[in-house]
Amino acid sequence: MALLGLTNIQVYKVLSANQIGEMVYEQTRTNLNAGQEYSFTWDGTVNNEGSFALSGRYKVKVVTTDFPQWPISADVVVRNTIDSEQFDISERISNSNQTIPSQKIRLMQTYLTDMELYEEEITGQYNEEFLMSVIAYEAMINKWSTQVAVDIYRNHNAYLPEDGTISDRLLHFAYTD
């Protein structure tokens, strides 16, 4: 069986739909048998930094020195699930009630009630249960929703922030659910 030359596996940060950023990871393999399938696992670490890649879109590119004209590329999405910040619930509720129109809050309360994710009165105001219901819904659809996956891959949008903030995008997902 023929052996391939060097095979480089590179991971790049995607900046926008048409722009690739810096390379964050590289691995070189040698003496791979041609015509066989191989797998590659990236644990999310960034070369020479010892840190993990930030949440976002990345492009994996596989190139062999024997056939550089036929690179293989694939998109991947990194979603870090470690809490990066703590927040004060009372402050978050107060800020949300001041900055998010009550009609949007009322609409989201209605949608979450219909989905049986919120059981309190529909008031058009944030309270602790509503905030936690919105965060739970954001986390749930980030992980399981086909709508979110399509929105990320086709439209190059980010995952929803899991902070309880009502956006038009979140309202759209809740409406269709």
Rank of each mutant, 00 (worst) to 15 (best):
E22R: 08
E22D: 12
E22P: 05
E22I: 07
M23N: 05
M23A: 08
V24I: 15
V24R: 00
V24S: 03
Y25T: 09
E26I: 08
Q27W: 06
Q27E: 14
T28P: 03
T28S: 13
T28H: 05
R29F: 11
T30D: 08
N31V: 05
N31K: 10
N31R: 05
N31L: 11
L32T: 04
L32M: 14
A34D: 13
A34T: 07
G35W: 14
G35D: 13
G35M: 13
G35V: 12
Q36E: 14
Q36P: 00
E37H: 10
E37F: 14
E37R: 14
E37D: 12
E37I: 11
Y38L: 06
Y38M: 03
Y38T: 07
S39P: 02
S39K: 12
S39E: 11
S39V: 08
S39F: 15
F40I: 06
F40N: 03
F40E: 04
F40M: 01
T41H: 11
T41L: 12
T41A: 09
W42H: 02
W42S: 02
W42A: 03
D43Y: 06
D43E: 14
D43C: 06
D43M: 04
G44M: 10
G44V: 08
T45F: 14
T45H: 08
V46C: 10
V46A: 08
N47Q: 15
N47I: 12
N47F: 05
N47G: 12
N48G: 12
N48A: 06
E49F: 02
E49C: 05
E49M: 07
E49A: 06
G50R: 04
S51V: 15
S51N: 12
S51I: 15
S51E: 14
F52D: 03
F52N: 11
F52E: 07
A53S: 14
A53K: 01
A53W: 01
L54H: 04
S55V: 06
S55W: 01
S55F: 04
G56K: 02
G56Y: 03
R57P: 00
R57F: 00
R57N: 01
Y58E: 00
Y58A: 00
Y58K: 00
